[in-house]
Design a protein around this nucleic acid. Sequence first.
DNA 1: AATACAATCGCATGAAAATGCGATGCGTTA
DNA 2: TAACGCATCGCATTTTCATGCGATTGTATT
Lengths: 207, 207
Amino acid sequence: MKNIAIIEDDVELRELLYRYLSHQNDFKCTISVNSMEDFFSELSDENKPDIILSDIGLPGKQGDESLREIKEKLPDTEIVMLTVHDDPDRIFKCLQGGASGYLLKNSPLEEIKKYLTILADGGSPMSPRIARKVIEYFQPKQKLEKQLTEREYDIVVGLVEGLSYKMIANKYDISLDTVRQHIRNVYRKLNVNSKAEVITKKLRGEI
Amino acid sequence: MKNIAIIEDDVELRELLYRYLSHQNDFKCTISVNSMEDFFSELSDENKPDIILSDIGLPGKQGDESLREIKEKLPDTEIVMLTVHDDPDRIFKCLQGGASGYLLKNSPLEEIKKYLTILADGGSPMSPRIARKVIEYFQPKQKLEKQLTEREYDIVVGLVEGLSYKMIANKYDISLDTVRQHIRNVYRKLNVNSKAEVITKKLRGEI
DNA sequence: AATACAATCGCATGAAAATGCGATGCGTTA
DNA sequence: TAACGCATCGCATTTTCATGCGATTGTATT
Protein backbone atom coordinates (compact mmCIF):
# COMPACT_ATOMS: atom_id res chain seq x y z
CA MET A 1 0.00 0.00 0.00
CA LYS A 2 1.53 3.28 -1.14
CA ASN A 3 0.61 6.75 -0.01
CA ILE A 4 0.02 9.11 -2.89
CA ALA A 5 -0.06 12.90 -2.86
CA ILE A 6 -1.65 14.79 -5.74
CA ILE A 7 -0.70 18.40 -6.39
CA GLU A 8 -2.73 19.73 -9.28
CA ASP A 9 -4.60 22.97 -9.77
CA ASP A 10 -6.99 21.61 -12.37
CA VAL A 11 -9.73 20.59 -9.92
CA GLU A 12 -11.45 18.31 -12.37
CA LEU A 13 -8.32 16.31 -13.11
CA ARG A 14 -7.31 16.25 -9.47
CA GLU A 15 -10.66 14.91 -8.36
CA LEU A 16 -10.58 12.35 -11.13
CA LEU A 17 -7.17 11.10 -10.08
CA TYR A 18 -8.10 11.20 -6.44
CA ARG A 19 -11.23 9.14 -6.85
CA TYR A 20 -9.64 6.72 -9.24
CA LEU A 21 -6.57 6.05 -7.15
CA SER A 22 -8.56 5.86 -3.91
CA HIS A 23 -10.48 2.94 -5.31
CA GLN A 24 -7.35 0.95 -6.07
CA ASN A 25 -6.12 -1.66 -3.66
CA ASP A 26 -2.48 -0.73 -3.76
CA PHE A 27 -2.75 3.02 -3.38
CA LYS A 28 -4.10 5.44 -0.84
CA CYS A 29 -4.49 9.15 -1.49
CA THR A 30 -3.50 10.99 1.65
CA ILE A 31 -3.01 14.44 0.23
CA SER A 32 -4.86 16.14 -2.58
CA VAL A 33 -4.19 19.84 -2.98
CA ASN A 34 -4.05 22.49 -5.67
CA SER A 35 -0.78 24.23 -4.87
CA MET A 36 2.70 23.56 -3.59
CA GLU A 37 2.08 25.86 -0.64
CA ASP A 38 -0.98 23.84 0.41
CA PHE A 39 1.03 20.67 0.06
CA PHE A 40 3.70 21.80 2.49
CA SER A 41 1.16 23.01 5.03
CA GLU A 42 -0.81 19.76 4.91
CA LEU A 43 2.33 17.68 5.17
CA SER A 44 2.96 16.04 8.53
CA ASP A 45 4.76 13.04 9.96
CA GLU A 46 1.56 11.00 9.68
CA ASN A 47 0.83 11.48 6.01
CA LYS A 48 4.22 11.42 4.33
CA PRO A 49 3.60 10.30 0.78
CA ASP A 50 5.61 7.58 -0.96
CA ILE A 51 4.79 9.09 -4.31
CA ILE A 52 3.95 12.63 -5.34
CA LEU A 53 2.04 13.33 -8.51
CA SER A 54 2.63 16.99 -9.27
CA ASP A 55 1.63 19.34 -12.01
CA ILE A 56 4.46 21.43 -13.39
CA GLY A 57 2.61 24.67 -13.98
CA LEU A 58 1.07 25.55 -10.64
CA PRO A 59 -0.25 28.83 -9.24
CA GLY A 60 2.35 30.39 -6.96
CA LYS A 61 5.41 28.25 -6.58
CA GLN A 62 6.00 26.26 -9.76
CA GLY A 63 6.19 22.51 -9.51
CA ASP A 64 9.56 22.21 -11.14
CA GLU A 65 11.05 24.85 -8.87
CA SER A 66 9.97 23.07 -5.72
CA LEU A 67 11.66 19.79 -6.54
CA ARG A 68 14.78 20.39 -4.54
CA GLU A 69 12.77 21.57 -1.56
CA ILE A 70 10.65 18.43 -1.67
CA LYS A 71 13.69 16.21 -2.06
CA GLU A 72 15.27 17.80 1.01
CA LYS A 73 12.25 17.22 3.21
CA LEU A 74 11.24 13.90 1.70
CA PRO A 75 14.39 12.29 0.30
CA ASP A 76 12.73 8.88 -0.12
CA THR A 77 9.66 10.09 -1.93
CA GLU A 78 9.34 9.51 -5.64
CA ILE A 79 8.13 12.48 -7.64
CA VAL A 80 6.26 12.18 -10.91
CA MET A 81 5.63 15.27 -12.94
CA LEU A 82 2.35 15.72 -14.79
CA THR A 83 2.31 17.94 -17.81
CA VAL A 84 0.50 18.78 -20.99
CA HIS A 85 3.66 19.98 -22.68
CA ASP A 86 6.68 18.09 -23.85
CA ASP A 87 9.10 21.00 -23.81
CA PRO A 88 12.58 19.44 -23.66
CA ASP A 89 14.12 22.13 -21.47
CA ARG A 90 11.40 21.74 -18.89
CA ILE A 91 11.70 17.98 -18.91
CA PHE A 92 15.42 18.20 -18.50
CA LYS A 93 15.09 20.68 -15.66
CA CYS A 94 12.68 18.43 -13.78
CA LEU A 95 14.82 15.35 -14.17
CA GLN A 96 17.88 17.27 -13.02
CA GLY A 97 15.87 18.50 -10.08
CA GLY A 98 15.09 15.04 -8.86
CA ALA A 99 11.88 13.92 -10.57
CA SER A 100 11.69 10.17 -11.10
CA GLY A 101 9.10 10.17 -13.81
CA TYR A 102 7.33 12.30 -16.30
CA LEU A 103 3.81 11.72 -17.55
CA LEU A 104 1.57 13.43 -20.02
CA LYS A 105 -1.78 14.48 -18.57
CA ASN A 106 -3.75 12.92 -21.35
CA SER A 107 -2.60 9.43 -20.37
CA PRO A 108 -5.47 7.01 -19.64
CA LEU A 109 -6.12 6.33 -15.97
CA GLU A 110 -5.22 2.66 -16.33
CA GLU A 111 -1.89 3.69 -17.75
CA ILE A 112 -1.25 6.06 -14.88
CA LYS A 113 -2.00 3.26 -12.47
CA LYS A 114 0.39 0.99 -14.34
CA TYR A 115 3.05 3.67 -14.22
CA LEU A 116 2.67 4.08 -10.48
CA THR A 117 3.05 0.36 -10.05
CA ILE A 118 6.22 0.45 -12.10
CA LEU A 119 7.52 3.28 -9.97
CA ALA A 120 6.88 1.37 -6.76
CA ASP A 121 8.84 -1.44 -8.36
CA GLY A 122 11.97 0.64 -8.90
CA GLY A 123 11.43 1.58 -12.51
CA SER A 124 10.66 4.98 -13.96
CA PRO A 125 7.44 5.75 -15.72
CA MET A 126 7.94 7.76 -18.86
CA SER A 127 5.56 8.39 -21.72
CA PRO A 128 7.13 7.23 -24.99
CA ARG A 129 6.93 10.74 -26.37
CA ILE A 130 8.76 12.06 -23.34
CA ALA A 131 11.30 9.29 -23.58
CA ARG A 132 12.05 10.38 -27.12
CA LYS A 133 12.72 13.92 -25.99
CA VAL A 134 14.98 12.71 -23.23
CA ILE A 135 16.93 10.54 -25.62
CA GLU A 136 17.34 13.41 -28.02
CA TYR A 137 19.02 15.30 -25.23
CA PHE A 138 21.76 12.71 -25.18
CA GLN A 139 22.34 12.66 -28.87
CA PRO A 140 24.73 14.77 -30.89
CA LYS A 141 22.98 18.05 -31.66
CA GLN A 142 23.96 19.36 -35.05
CA LYS A 143 26.40 17.38 -37.10
CA LEU A 144 29.24 19.66 -38.03
CA GLU A 145 30.48 19.39 -41.59
CA LYS A 146 34.05 19.66 -40.46
CA GLN A 147 34.18 16.49 -38.43
CA LEU A 148 37.18 15.61 -36.36
CA THR A 149 39.56 12.87 -37.42
CA GLU A 150 40.12 9.86 -35.20
CA ARG A 151 43.33 11.24 -33.82
CA GLU A 152 41.79 14.61 -33.13
CA TYR A 153 38.96 12.84 -31.37
CA ASP A 154 41.49 10.97 -29.22
CA ILE A 155 43.02 14.25 -28.18
CA VAL A 156 39.62 15.71 -27.35
CA VAL A 157 38.83 12.72 -25.17
CA GLY A 158 42.15 13.27 -23.42
CA LEU A 159 41.27 16.89 -22.72
CA VAL A 160 37.90 15.91 -21.26
CA GLU A 161 39.66 13.44 -18.99
CA GLY A 162 41.70 16.31 -17.65
CA LEU A 163 45.01 15.29 -19.18
CA SER A 164 47.73 17.81 -19.99
CA TYR A 165 49.30 17.96 -23.44
CA LYS A 166 52.28 16.13 -22.06
CA MET A 167 50.14 13.30 -20.67
CA ILE A 168 48.26 13.00 -23.94
CA ALA A 169 51.55 12.82 -25.82
CA ASN A 170 52.67 9.99 -23.57
CA LYS A 171 49.36 8.18 -23.79
CA TYR A 172 49.42 8.02 -27.57
CA ASP A 173 53.20 7.90 -27.83
CA ILE A 174 53.52 10.99 -29.98
CA SER A 175 55.47 14.18 -29.42
CA LEU A 176 54.26 17.18 -27.49
CA ASP A 177 54.43 19.28 -30.62
CA THR A 178 52.23 16.84 -32.47
CA VAL A 179 49.63 17.14 -29.76
CA ARG A 180 49.86 20.89 -30.11
CA GLN A 181 49.33 20.58 -33.84
CA HIS A 182 46.22 18.43 -33.41
CA ILE A 183 44.85 20.85 -30.86
CA ARG A 184 45.36 23.66 -33.34
CA ASN A 185 43.38 21.75 -35.94
CA VAL A 186 40.62 20.94 -33.49
CA TYR A 187 40.33 24.59 -32.50
CA ARG A 188 40.13 25.63 -36.13
CA LYS A 189 37.48 23.04 -36.97
CA LEU A 190 35.37 23.81 -33.93
CA ASN A 191 35.99 27.51 -34.18
CA VAL A 192 37.19 27.87 -30.61
CA ASN A 193 40.45 28.84 -28.94
CA SER A 194 40.64 27.19 -25.55
CA LYS A 195 40.61 23.78 -23.92
CA ALA A 196 37.60 24.81 -21.89
CA GLU A 197 35.42 25.40 -24.93
CA VAL A 198 36.37 22.06 -26.45
CA ILE A 199 35.51 20.22 -23.25
CA THR A 200 32.21 22.03 -22.92
CA LYS A 201 31.27 21.28 -26.52
CA LYS A 202 32.19 17.65 -26.15
CA LEU A 203 30.24 17.11 -22.94
CA ARG A 204 27.23 18.92 -24.36
CA GLY A 205 27.22 16.48 -27.24
CA GLU A 206 28.12 19.07 -29.86
CA ILE A 207 31.06 17.05 -31.07
CA MET B 1 4.22 -2.06 -42.86
CA LYS B 2 7.68 -1.64 -41.39
CA ASN B 3 10.81 -3.50 -42.34
CA ILE B 4 12.65 -4.93 -39.37
CA ALA B 5 16.24 -6.13 -39.14
CA ILE B 6 17.31 -8.36 -36.28
CA ILE B 7 20.96 -8.57 -35.30
CA GLU B 8 21.37 -11.05 -32.49
CA ASP B 9 23.86 -13.84 -31.94
CA ASP B 10 21.64 -15.83 -29.62
CA VAL B 11 20.08 -18.00 -32.32
CA GLU B 12 17.17 -19.09 -30.17
CA LEU B 13 16.15 -15.55 -29.32
CA ARG B 14 16.69 -14.40 -32.88
CA GLU B 15 14.52 -17.12 -34.32
CA LEU B 16 11.88 -16.42 -31.72
CA LEU B 17 11.79 -12.74 -32.59
CA TYR B 18 11.92 -13.48 -36.29
CA ARG B 19 8.98 -15.86 -36.25
CA TYR B 20 6.96 -13.73 -33.91
CA LEU B 21 7.43 -10.49 -35.82
CA SER B 22 6.92 -12.20 -39.20
CA HIS B 23 3.46 -13.19 -38.13
CA GLN B 24 2.44 -9.66 -37.29
CA ASN B 25 0.52 -7.59 -39.77
CA ASP B 26 2.46 -4.40 -39.35
CA PHE B 27 5.99 -5.76 -39.49
CA LYS B 28 8.11 -7.65 -41.95
CA CYS B 29 11.47 -9.15 -41.08
CA THR B 30 13.77 -8.58 -44.01
CA ILE B 31 17.09 -9.24 -42.33
CA SER B 32 17.91 -11.66 -39.55
CA VAL B 33 21.60 -12.16 -38.87
CA ASN B 34 23.91 -12.95 -35.98
CA SER B 35 26.61 -10.33 -36.43
CA MET B 36 27.14 -6.74 -37.49
CA GLU B 37 29.38 -7.87 -40.31
CA ASP B 38 26.63 -10.11 -41.72
CA PHE B 39 24.19 -7.27 -41.44
CA PHE B 40 26.28 -4.97 -43.57
CA SER B 41 26.88 -7.63 -46.19
CA GLU B 42 23.21 -8.53 -46.46
CA LEU B 43 22.19 -4.89 -46.62
CA SER B 44 21.12 -3.64 -50.04
CA ASP B 45 18.92 -0.94 -51.53
CA GLU B 46 16.01 -3.38 -51.65
CA ASN B 47 15.91 -4.40 -47.99
CA LYS B 48 16.72 -1.24 -46.09
CA PRO B 49 15.15 -1.67 -42.67
CA ASP B 50 13.00 0.95 -40.98
CA ILE B 51 13.91 -0.43 -37.61
CA ILE B 52 16.93 -2.36 -36.40
CA LEU B 53 16.77 -4.54 -33.34
CA SER B 54 20.35 -5.11 -32.30
CA ASP B 55 22.06 -6.92 -29.50
CA ILE B 56 24.78 -4.94 -27.76
CA GLY B 57 27.25 -7.70 -27.09
CA LEU B 58 27.92 -9.25 -30.47
CA PRO B 59 30.77 -11.42 -31.74
CA GLY B 60 33.24 -9.29 -33.68
CA LYS B 61 32.13 -5.71 -33.99
CA GLN B 62 30.13 -4.72 -30.92
CA GLY B 63 26.64 -3.40 -31.39
CA ASP B 64 27.21 -0.19 -29.54
CA GLU B 65 30.35 0.56 -31.50
CA SER B 66 28.62 0.21 -34.84
CA LEU B 67 25.94 2.78 -34.13
CA ARG B 68 27.66 5.66 -35.84
CA GLU B 69 28.40 3.54 -38.87
CA ILE B 70 24.77 2.46 -39.14
CA LYS B 71 23.53 5.99 -38.68
CA GLU B 72 25.78 7.16 -41.50
CA LYS B 73 24.53 4.57 -43.95
CA LEU B 74 20.93 4.55 -42.76
CA PRO B 75 20.21 7.95 -41.25
CA ASP B 76 16.45 7.40 -41.18
CA THR B 77 16.52 4.02 -39.53
CA GLU B 78 15.53 3.70 -35.91
CA ILE B 79 17.82 1.56 -33.81
CA VAL B 80 16.69 -0.29 -30.72
CA MET B 81 19.28 -1.94 -28.54
CA LEU B 82 18.58 -5.28 -26.91
CA THR B 83 20.43 -6.14 -23.75
CA VAL B 84 20.42 -8.27 -20.67
CA HIS B 85 22.37 -5.71 -18.69
CA ASP B 86 21.35 -2.33 -17.41
CA ASP B 87 24.83 -0.89 -17.09
CA PRO B 88 24.39 2.89 -17.07
CA ASP B 89 27.58 3.67 -18.96
CA ARG B 90 26.64 1.32 -21.75
CA ILE B 91 23.15 2.73 -21.97
CA PHE B 92 24.48 6.23 -22.09
CA LYS B 93 26.98 5.32 -24.78
CA CYS B 94 24.29 3.79 -26.97
CA LEU B 95 21.94 6.71 -26.62
CA GLN B 96 24.74 9.12 -27.43
CA GLY B 97 25.60 6.99 -30.41
CA GLY B 98 22.17 7.36 -31.91
CA ALA B 99 20.02 4.54 -30.53
CA SER B 100 16.34 5.46 -30.25
CA GLY B 101 15.36 2.86 -27.75
CA TYR B 102 16.67 0.41 -25.26
CA LEU B 103 14.96 -2.83 -24.32
CA LEU B 104 15.73 -5.61 -21.92
CA LYS B 105 15.88 -9.03 -23.53
CA ASN B 106 13.56 -10.58 -21.01
CA SER B 107 10.66 -8.39 -22.15
CA PRO B 108 7.58 -10.35 -23.26
CA LEU B 109 7.05 -10.58 -27.00
CA GLU B 110 3.79 -8.67 -26.86
CA GLU B 111 5.62 -5.86 -25.11
CA ILE B 112 8.33 -5.81 -27.74
CA LYS B 113 5.65 -5.56 -30.39
CA LYS B 114 4.04 -2.70 -28.52
CA TYR B 115 7.38 -0.95 -28.25
CA LEU B 116 7.98 -1.26 -31.96
CA THR B 117 4.59 0.24 -32.62
CA ILE B 118 5.43 3.12 -30.33
CA LEU B 119 8.68 3.63 -32.15
CA ALA B 120 6.96 3.75 -35.53
CA ASP B 121 4.71 6.37 -33.98
CA GLY B 122 7.57 8.71 -33.06
CA GLY B 123 7.98 7.73 -29.43
CA SER B 124 10.85 5.92 -27.82
CA PRO B 125 10.49 2.51 -26.28
CA MET B 126 12.31 2.19 -23.01
CA SER B 127 11.97 -0.44 -20.32
CA PRO B 128 11.05 1.21 -17.02
CA ARG B 129 14.22 -0.10 -15.44
CA ILE B 130 16.27 1.43 -18.22
CA ALA B 131 14.35 4.67 -17.95
CA ARG B 132 15.30 4.83 -14.31
CA LYS B 133 18.96 4.50 -15.15
CA VAL B 134 18.70 7.17 -17.78
CA ILE B 135 17.01 9.52 -15.38
CA GLU B 136 19.67 8.91 -12.78
CA TYR B 137 22.19 10.12 -15.29
CA PHE B 138 20.55 13.53 -15.26
CA GLN B 139 20.40 13.82 -11.54
CA PRO B 140 23.03 15.26 -9.23
CA LYS B 141 25.37 12.39 -8.38
CA GLN B 142 26.67 12.59 -4.84
CA LYS B 143 26.13 15.71 -2.86
CA LEU B 144 29.51 16.93 -1.73
CA GLU B 145 29.74 18.06 1.86
CA LYS B 146 32.05 20.87 0.92
CA GLN B 147 29.67 22.74 -1.31
CA LEU B 148 30.82 25.74 -3.26
CA THR B 149 29.89 29.24 -2.22
CA GLU B 150 27.90 31.46 -4.55
CA ARG B 151 30.96 33.28 -5.73
CA GLU B 152 32.86 30.10 -6.33
CA TYR B 153 29.90 28.82 -8.29
CA ASP B 154 29.97 31.98 -10.41
CA ILE B 155 33.58 31.36 -11.22
CA VAL B 156 32.88 27.72 -12.14
CA VAL B 157 30.14 28.83 -14.49
CA GLY B 158 32.60 31.24 -16.05
CA LEU B 159 35.08 28.44 -16.62
CA VAL B 160 32.42 26.27 -18.27
CA GLU B 161 31.57 29.17 -20.56
CA GLY B 162 35.18 29.18 -21.67
CA LEU B 163 36.15 32.47 -20.07
CA SER B 164 39.72 33.23 -19.03
CA TYR B 165 40.52 34.40 -15.51
CA LYS B 166 40.84 37.90 -16.86
CA MET B 167 37.41 37.78 -18.48
CA ILE B 168 35.86 36.39 -15.31
CA ALA B 169 37.48 39.17 -13.30
CA ASN B 170 35.98 41.74 -15.64
CA LYS B 171 32.58 40.08 -15.67
CA TYR B 172 32.24 40.19 -11.89
CA ASP B 173 34.29 43.35 -11.47
CA ILE B 174 36.87 41.81 -9.17
CA SER B 175 40.61 41.56 -9.48
CA LEU B 176 42.49 38.85 -11.30
CA ASP B 177 44.09 37.74 -8.06
CA THR B 178 40.71 37.33 -6.43
CA VAL B 179 39.61 35.06 -9.24
CA ARG B 180 42.79 33.09 -8.68
CA GLN B 181 41.98 32.81 -5.00
CA HIS B 182 38.47 31.51 -5.67
CA ILE B 183 39.83 29.02 -8.17
CA ARG B 184 42.26 27.80 -5.53
CA ASN B 185 39.40 27.25 -3.11
CA VAL B 186 37.32 25.48 -5.73
CA TYR B 187 40.19 23.15 -6.54
CA ARG B 188 40.70 22.34 -2.90
CA LYS B 189 37.01 21.65 -2.29
CA LEU B 190 36.62 19.51 -5.40
CA ASN B 191 39.98 17.89 -4.94
CA VAL B 192 41.22 18.68 -8.43
CA ASN B 193 43.97 20.82 -9.92
CA SER B 194 42.96 21.95 -13.35
CA LYS B 195 40.26 23.90 -15.15
CA ALA B 196 39.49 20.88 -17.27
CA GLU B 197 38.54 18.72 -14.31
CA VAL B 198 36.27 21.39 -12.89
CA ILE B 199 34.46 21.79 -16.19
CA THR B 200 34.07 18.04 -16.62
CA LYS B 201 32.71 17.66 -13.09
CA LYS B 202 30.27 20.51 -13.54
CA LEU B 203 28.91 19.25 -16.85
CA ARG B 204 28.60 15.74 -15.51
CA GLY B 205 26.40 17.05 -12.72
CA GLU B 206 28.89 16.33 -9.97
CA ILE B 207 28.85 19.89 -8.72
C1' DA C 1 35.49 37.72 22.59
C1' DA C 2 36.98 34.27 19.84
C1' DT C 3 36.70 31.34 16.00
C1' DA C 4 35.53 30.36 11.37
C1' DC C 5 34.84 31.38 6.80
C1' DA C 6 33.52 34.21 2.78
C1' DA C 7 35.24 37.69 -0.24
C1' DT C 8 38.52 40.68 -1.49
C1' DC C 9 43.48 41.98 -3.06
C1' DG C 10 48.80 41.70 -3.90
C1' DC C 11 53.38 39.70 -5.47
C1' DA C 12 56.05 36.08 -7.38
C1' DT C 13 57.34 31.88 -9.91
C1' DG C 14 57.33 27.84 -12.73
C1' DA C 15 54.44 25.14 -15.66
C1' DA C 16 51.11 24.72 -19.24
C1' DA C 17 48.64 26.35 -23.03
C1' DA C 18 47.79 29.09 -27.41
C1' DT C 19 49.70 30.45 -31.55
C1' DG C 20 52.96 31.57 -35.46
C1' DC C 21 56.03 29.57 -38.79
C1' DG C 22 58.34 25.99 -40.53
C1' DA C 23 58.92 20.95 -42.16
C1' DT C 24 58.34 15.60 -44.00
C1' DG C 25 55.85 11.38 -45.58
C1' DC C 26 51.72 9.06 -46.92
C1' DG C 27 47.52 8.24 -48.75
C1' DT C 28 43.28 9.81 -51.74
C1' DT C 29 41.12 12.33 -55.09
C1' DA C 30 40.66 15.57 -58.94
C1' DT D 1 50.61 14.69 -61.58
C1' DA D 2 49.02 18.10 -58.64
C1' DA D 3 46.31 19.20 -54.84
C1' DC D 4 44.54 18.05 -50.50
C1' DG D 5 44.04 16.35 -45.98
C1' DC D 6 46.04 13.60 -42.25
C1' DA D 7 49.66 12.54 -38.98
C1' DT D 8 53.92 13.52 -37.51
C1' DC D 9 57.78 16.67 -35.57
C1' DG D 10 60.57 21.09 -34.30
C1' DC D 11 61.43 25.94 -32.47
C1' DA D 12 59.96 30.29 -30.53
C1' DT D 13 56.90 33.62 -28.25
C1' DT D 14 53.19 35.39 -25.63
C1' DT D 15 49.50 34.50 -22.70
C1' DT D 16 47.23 31.97 -19.27
C1' DC D 17 47.16 28.94 -15.50
C1' DA D 18 48.49 26.75 -11.02
C1' DT D 19 50.30 27.59 -6.79
C1' DG D 20 53.02 29.48 -2.84
C1' DC D 21 52.93 33.13 0.62
C1' DG D 22 51.05 36.97 2.43
C1' DA D 23 47.12 40.32 3.75
C1' DT D 24 42.28 43.00 5.29
C1' DT D 25 37.33 43.30 5.92
C1' DG D 26 32.89 41.69 7.16
C1' DT D 27 29.50 38.41 8.84
C1' DA D 28 27.91 34.64 11.30
C1' DT D 29 28.45 31.18 14.82
C1' DT D 30 29.98 29.60 19.32
